[in-house]
């Protein structure tokens, strides 16, 4: 079992993701430079957070054109698990692998804090076994995490079970006050129709061991490992 951690110019959560996978979970992980055009031999892909290309034009707008994104597209089409975290989520949106777009936070402030998430579906490889309604404590750190999609897209996401996480209060209530950035319908993470591509603004790799204030992030990577273990070869 081998995981790829993509590295673009300006990625800065790549080492955190690598550490969580390799030393926290104990799965094999490799950095993959964005100029590479193949993901052969990998079982899962992590697109980490950061500020690829300095967020020029729009977050993720340049990174979507890197050669490795063609490989990610093929990997995703083949059903392979892909998780985009923070800037990785923004890249997946820009690449059209997930619907919608990011606006600047409605507060116009960079938000860096622990938030609570309410799990919406266990159908993704990263939430396998995390029942709907489960509350996770995971940090966010972003300026452009205000998820936007038109009403029709939002309703379609809900109907098809593609809303994976919503911002909530510690008791699991999805409230306006618990929404850190103004995201439509408190959306913190969504998946594609197939369920194998997940994008989320919060950072599970930053909270995969108790010493970091929460180990809830580890559950996503544990789920991924379990999912890969069950997957027919």
């Amino acid at each position: 079992m081998k995981t790829a951690v993509l590295v673009f110019p300006g990625s800065n959560c790549d080492h955190d993701a690598y550490h969580a996978l390799k030393h926290g979970i104990g799965v094999d992980a490799d950095f993959v430079w964005h100029r590479r055009s193949s993901l052969d031999g990998f079982d899962a892909v992590v697109i980490p957070g950061g500020f690829t290309y300095g967020d020029y034009l729009r977050s993720g707008a340049m990174a979507k054109l890197s050669p490795v994104m063609g490989a990610v597209r093929r990997f995703a089409e083949g059903g392979g698990p892909v998780i985009g975290i923070c800037n990785g989520f923004q890249i997946l949106l820009e690449a059209g692998l997930l619907p919608g777009a990011m606006l600047v936070n409605d507060s116009l402030r960079f938000v860096c804090d622990f938030v609570h998430l309410r799990a919406g579906t266990d159908r993704t490889p990263f939430t396998r076994g995390i029942q709907e309604g489960t509350i996770l404590k995971i940090p966010v750190a972003h300026y452009q995490g205000n998820y936007y999609a038109d009403e029709r897209t939002l309703s379609s996401l809900e109907e098809r079970g593609q809303v994976v996480f919503r911002y909530c209060d510690p008791e699991g209530n999805v409230t306006r006050e618990s929404n850190p950035n103004g995201s439509a319908r408190n959306i913190a993470g969504i998946c594609n129709e197939g369920g194998n591509v997940l994008g989320m603004m919060p950072h599970p790799e930053r909270c995969s061991e108790e010493v970091l204030g929460s180990a809830d992030g580890r559950r996503l990577f544990d789920a991924m490992v379990a999912w890969l273990g069950e997957r027919p070869a």
């Binding site: 034009l57 729009r58 707008a61 054109l65 949106l93 820009e94 619907p99 919608g100 777009a101 606006l103 936007y148 999609a149 038109d150």
Partner: peptide, 8 residues
């Protein structure tokens, strides 16, 4: 394809 994101 690049300069604008027509979603927003």
């Amino acid at each position: 394809r690049l300069l604008a994101n027509t979603v927003i």
